[in-house]
Design a protein around this nucleic acid. Sequence first.
DNA 1: TCAATTCGGAACCAATCGGTCAATAACTGA
DNA 2: TCAGTTATTGACCGATTGGTTCCGAATTGA
Lengths: 189, 189
Amino acid sequence: MARPREFDIDEALDRAMAVFWEKGYEGTSLQDLLQAMKIARGSLYKAFEDKHSIYLAALDRYDQTEVESGIAFLCDPKAGDGMAKIRTMLEAVKADKARRGCFMCNAALDRASVDAEISAKVSTMLHRLEDAVAAALKQSRRGKRWSAKRRAVTAATILNTYMGLRVLSRAGYAEKDLQAIVDNTLSTI
Amino acid sequence: MARPREFDIDEALDRAMAVFWEKGYEGTSLQDLLQAMKIARGSLYKAFEDKHSIYLAALDRYDQTEVESGIAFLCDPKAGDGMAKIRTMLEAVKADKARRGCFMCNAALDRASVDAEISAKVSTMLHRLEDAVAAALKQSRRGKRWSAKRRAVTAATILNTYMGLRVLSRAGYAEKDLQAIVDNTLSTI
DNA sequence: TCAATTCGGAACCAATCGGTCAATAACTGA
DNA sequence: TCAGTTATTGACCGATTGGTTCCGAATTGA
C-alpha cells in the first residue's frame, strides 16, 4: 500500500530511552534524540507526536521490557526461592557499572512533579513491582507464613530499599557499600 | 564606596534553590530564576557567574542550611535518644506535603551523571549525613553496644531508606504507606 | 560636592530550542 | 505499469535559550 518504515520503532525507542535515562527530559534535545535514534527530524515527527510523547513511549517500553521481565522473574516459582530472587534483584543494582540508576526512578524525580501523566504511569509501575516483590515473599520459606499485610509492608520496604540503592548508585557510592546495604537489609527480613 | 546590593544573596539563593528543586537544572530557565529571585538580569550576572554557578551555590546553601542542621540535630546528645532522632528524620519525609523530595537527592539523579563537580559535592554531603546517622546510633540504647563497623553499615542502610522515601514521596506514595515503611525499617534495627 | 562604584532594567546577541513542511523516494495493490 | 500512499530528508520557522552590554539612577567615601 505504501512505503514501509525503514527503522524499527522499538529499537529507536530503546535508543531514545537511553538518552533520556542519562540526561533527563529537559536535558535531552531533539538533536540528541535524532542522533541517538539515527533517524531524520521528519521521520521522527511522522512516527511520534512530539518530544513528550516519545518520553512516554520510552517509559512504556521500559515498563514492557525491564519492569515486566523483573516482575515475571520475581513471580516465577521455577526461578528459585523468593528471597533469593529478591536478593538477585537488589544486587543487580550494584552490578550496573554504568550507574544509570533506574529509568522509572529518574522519571519520578525528574518529571513526576511537573507531569501528571508520567507521575501516574510511574506510580502504577511502582505498585506493580511492589506486588511482585510481595508475591516473591510468598514463595520464600519465611514469608509464606506471614499475613498478606505483613508481606505487603515488607515488599514496600524492599522496594524502598531498591529505590535508595538506585539513587546512591547514581550518586557514586562504592560497590562494596551498596553490597553491605543489601546484605544488611536482607538479614533483617 | 559604592552603591550597596539591594537584595540579600542568601535569600535570593533560597528562592533559586526552590526553583531548581522543583524543576531540575535544565528545566529551569534564566527567566524562571529571575522571576523567583525577584532581581533583574543584570543584577544576577553581577552577583553570580552563570547559571551553573548559581546551581552550585544553591547546593552549597542547601548543605549549610538543611543538611548541616540535620546533622547537628542527629549529633546533638541533648536532642534525645539516637533512635528517636533517626525516626524523626525519616518521618519528616512523609510530612513534607509539597513532596519536593530532597534537593541533594534530586541533584544526584539530575546532575551527577553529567557534572563531576556536583557529583563530588553530593557525595561528600551524603557521607557526612551518613556519619551523623552513625553518631546518632551511638547515642541509642542498642547502638552504643555495637561495633563501629556495624553502626556504619546500619547508618548506610538508614540513609538508603531515607533516599528511597524521598523518591517514593516524590512519586506520590501515600503517607500511610511511607509511614509503614518507616515503622517496618526501624523495627528491624 | 563629586568621583567612584554598583545598582536595576531593558535592549540586544548568537545559538539552540521544539516543531513544520514541501519535495522526493520507495513501496503496494490493482 | 502506474495510481495511491506513506516514509525520508533537510531546509526552514518563530520562540526561547543563556549570556552581554549599555544606560541613567542611586549610594557611597573623600
